[in-house]
């Protein structure tokens, strides 16, 4: 079974595009939340790191991809590949500092975001196709009117 031509690449773009940005944001939120909880309760739910310097190091790795997206958006294909590659590397580093529960939680979030974002992108793509059909009709009407005026 093949995807229709209109939607081909949709899932891939959802995976490689905005999704990692949200993944990094969620990672940062989880790390900061865990840091606060760990400080208060001494628990180790997600992170092994309880020491402040390790916590800050992990938080930095999670924040870096967001900064990369903020400052290095580019339309060039090579730059985009480098950009996404760096983002993937930095986004996956916090997983090294986590226990199995943390990793499972993050990967679950990842799939939920892919599903939500992919569905959102799919509905937007459908809407864009319908709008483009209407625009094409509008342009045809205008061109026909222009021809009529020229003939008269």
């Amino acid at each position: 079974m093949r995807l229709r031509k209109d939607y081909r690449g949709l899932i891939l773009r959802a995976l490689l595009g905005q999704m990692f940005k949200y993944f990094c944001i969620i990672t940062t939120i989880l790390i900061i939340t865990n840091g606060i909880i760990a400080r208060i309760t001494g628990s180790e739910w997600i992170l092994y790191a309880q020491d402040l310097h390790r916590f800050l190091l992990v938080a930095l790795f999670a924040v870096l991809p967001i900064l990369i997206y903020a400052f290095f958006e580019s339309d060039g294909i090579i730059l985009r590949i480098i950009h996404i590659g760096l983002t993937i590397v930095f986004a996956l580093v916090p997983l090294l500092f986590m226990n199995d529960t943390g990793r499972a939680t993050l990967i679950t979030f990842l799939f939920i975001f892919v599903a939500i974002y992919g569905y959102g992108y799919y509905t937007e793509k459908r809407a864009a196709i319908e709008i483009n059909k209407k625009l094409a009709e509008l342009h045809l009407e205008e061109d026909a009117t222009h021809i009529d005026k020229n003939e008269t």
Binding site: Y121, A127, A128, I131, N132, L135, L138
Partner: peptide, 16 residues
Amino acid sequence: NVRKIQSVAPAGGGRF
């Protein structure tokens, strides 16, 4: 001007 729009494409986050 809507008549000057050639085409639209999703830009993510609900934008076009």
